[in-house]
Structures are given as C-alpha cells and as structure tokens.
Write a protein that binds this DNA or RNA. Structure first.
Lengths: 217, 217
DNA sequence: GTGCGCTTGTGAAAACGTTCACGAATTCCG
DNA sequence: CGGAATTCGTGAACGTTTTCACAAGCGCAC
C-alpha cells in the first residue's frame, strides 16, 4: 500500500500517535503494538492498524511496531521535519496566551511575530515575540517565510485580518475568532471555537436532563 | 420528522447557525433562506436544510425561514436556556486566558471558579474568578452545581485533574492539555489540542511542497 | 384562479469513516 | 520440528455524513 493519499480523519490522529510514540520511546520501549497505541490514543486498535497502513509503514506480525522506526514514519508523513513560522494576530487574552505558548515552538511552529491594532502595544514584545501593527503583516510574512496565520482577534476584525494574511501569501489559517472567514481555495482554514465546544457539551448535558415540564399537551 | 435524535455532525453545526441567526436578527432580517445560512456558516445549502429538518422545525417553501422562530428552535435544541457553570483547572497562560474570557459567560457558561496547584495564587482572583486549590474541587462543584470542567493544566497533571473532576460529579470535560484523558462512560470529553491543529495544517503545507530530493532511487 | 418562480423537505445515491473478522507472518516453547 | 500464541494487514460489512435531485408547497402577478 503506497503513501498515495491519507484520509483526513487519519491525518488528524497522527499527531496523537506521534505523541504516544514519543512517550513510549522515553519510557524505553523498543517495540509496541496496535493495542498499546490504541489504548494511549483512546481509539480502537483496528483503527490504529488501518491508519498506520496508509503510511506504507510495516510492523511485524506477531511482534508489533518498532517504536523508533514508526516514529520516523509518522514524523515523515506529517512533515514534522519542516519548521513553519507562525504569526499571531490579535493580542487579547487568548492571543497573548498563544503568543506565550511554548509548545508551539517545540513542535516546529515558532511564533515569530504578533500583530495587534492597538498602537499602545505595537513596538513592544510579549515574551520575546515582537508586536507589530497590521499594516506590517505583508513584510512580516515575507521576512520570516510565514505560512500559517493564527487569528485571535475579536470577531469583527477576523475577516479583515484573514484578508491581510491571504494577501501576504499565508496558506493556512487557524481561526479562534468564532466567525466563519472566507478565503480563496488554495488557503486552508481550521476553526477552533471554544464557545461552540462548550455548547456541544451543553447539548448533551441538556439531552440527559429529565424531560421538561410545561410542554404543550 | 420528530426531534428524536440529532446526529453529532449536526449538533456541532447548530452553534454556528445560531450565531448566524443572531447576526441576521441584529441586521433586521425577518426571514432568511438555507442559501443565506449556508453562505454564512460556510457549508452547503442542502446540509443546512437537512440539519434543520432534524429539529422538526419548519420553514416555509417559497419563502424561507422565520429568523425569530428558527432562532428559538435552534436555541431550544441546544438547550441554551440552561446555564452551565464551569470551573477552569490550571492557570497557565491558556487557563488564565480562558478564565478571563468573557464570551463564555455570554453564552451561558460562567466561569465560577478556577483551580491551580500553586499556593502562591490560591486565594487570589483572576478577573473576579476566585482561585482555589485542587483539593477544593469537590466543594466547588457541589456549591456551584458545576457540570463542566475545563482542563488547562500541563499534560502530566491532566489525568489526575480529570479524576478529581469526575469524582466531584462533573459530567463533561473540555481538555486543552494535549493528552488523552480516560474517564467513565457517563462522562463526555472533548479535546482541543492546539499543537495538533497546527500539525494538521503543517501536514497539508508539507503535502503541497514539491517532492523532496534525495529519495532512494 | 391559473401559472410561474422560489424555496423547503426528503428520499436515494455517493462518499467517507469505523469496526469486524480472519488469513498470514512471526516468535516461542517443548 | 510442530504447534500454540501473537499481532499485523486488509477485505468486507456496517454506520454515518454529505450531496444530489426533485416533488411539494407557497406567494405573487395578472
């Protein structure tokens, strides 16, 4: 089975496997199994095997997977050898937390700059990340080779920010703004909406509630 | 079609529709169509119609949907009339941002307390949210009727925190910790992993790259 | 009223994702 | 060496989600 095309659902799980593999390696395990990986990733073992089969990687029947080799295969599939500089737009509570977040750099996504419209903070730094004004987005992207923009602005500035990022040549956007931003086909947007997540949880809580009184008879 | 069972995929989109409806109402539109909603939600019009059909709600053929009535129906399906108090665990960069985030309260998810293991900050407040120590989780949950816990701790404290939340009676967990937490069946966990999101974007960037040189011939 | 244009609601088809179940490959042990 | 125990890889079955396509209902114009 060639590395031809990896389903989206699988791609979304690869980072979880990679993390599990790193932990296993740190624990000194040389080999592992789909059962162990499934347990750690919180999924079904068959799913692990099928996911890994898309990588064209091969475990050994009766034995399992070589942790080092599998780590290499998953890393290669994800392209983690690449470093993708990121710019964070909007330095509210969330944007500031993202700019300070050290986990990004560790995984190959260094925050090279932040952008905010407030002139009081442009020119300053947030944990060594320089803060610029929005009209400098194009320069920043060009200077650092930024491919990913993070939008953490208020909703009403999100589309405008996205437009600036796209015009500057950014090809991927991670949007925390609780709005749907429209971009050209060649740009990928992933939306993380914290309120929506809570509303989904709230839906299930609500569902489990005893049926309401006062319904129309 | 009865309100019997709403597919998960639909539930995940209802908050987006609800937001669009609120905007349309604010703009003074009395009626709208699946096309308009689809445009705003960034989805296919047929999907909007099918999603809404699960609510047992009825638009008017040839006319569209009544914005006020549809808002009511979607709100009811989501159970937004309920208020679900939330406790935020872990006051690092992200936890602090979440505790300060005003959007939660606006949508019926007030952050009633925060929890951190650092004795230097327990007893203080973060934007009026009181900070307690982890061993007070049970009391907090009981006192405020908390049903949802947010985990924003470092990864190594996540499972432990989840256990405390579950023991205290929390039924839903929103996990930002980049780990897979294990909980009993009656507890729902949603995971938001920021690094994973970036890695998925990175995967596609990597895929679009010209094929690497130096492959085995 | 009758006809026309618009928009919903929904079967049916297609695409996608998950899980099952089992053959095949490997190791280990007696 | 032969058989039991593992564990992978994968075709097939199943379930979910998306999309299509069109009949049915509604309003307006005349």
């Amino acid at each position: 089975m060639a590395t031809g095309h990896i389903p989206e659902a699988t791609v979304a799980r690869l980072p979880v496997y990679l993390r599990s593999l790193t932990e296993l390696a740190a624990a000194g395990d040389a080999t592992t199994s789909s059962d162990v990986l499934a347990e750690r990733a919180g999924v079904n073992p068959a799913k692990v095997r099928k996911d890994l089969s898309y990588l064209g990687t091969h475990g050994t029947r009766g034995v399992g997977y070589d942790v080092r080799h599998l780590t290499f295969e998953v890393s290669r599939a994800l392209g983690v050898a690449n470093t993708w500089p990121v710019v964070v737009c909007g330095l509210g509570n969330l944007g500031r937390a993202l700019a300070k977040h050290t986990g990004f750099t560790e995984r190959g996504f260094p925050v090279v700059a932040a952008v905010d419209i407030d002139p009081a903070i442009t020119g300053t730094t947030v944990d060594d990340v320089p803060v610029h004004s929005p009209d400098q987005i194009a320069e920043l992207v060009a200077a650092h080779g930024v491919a990913i923009g993070v939008i953490a602005t208020p909703g009403n500035a999100a589309q405008e920010t996205a437009d600036l990022l796209v015009a500057a040549g950014v090809r991927s956007i991670l949007d925390f703004s609780s709005t749907v931003v429209t971009v050209p086909d060649h740009v990928e947007v992933r939306t993380v909406d914290l309120s929506t997540e809570l509303q989904i949880l709230g839906f299930h809580l609500h569902q489990d509630l005893p049926p309401e009184v006062g319904k129309t008879p």
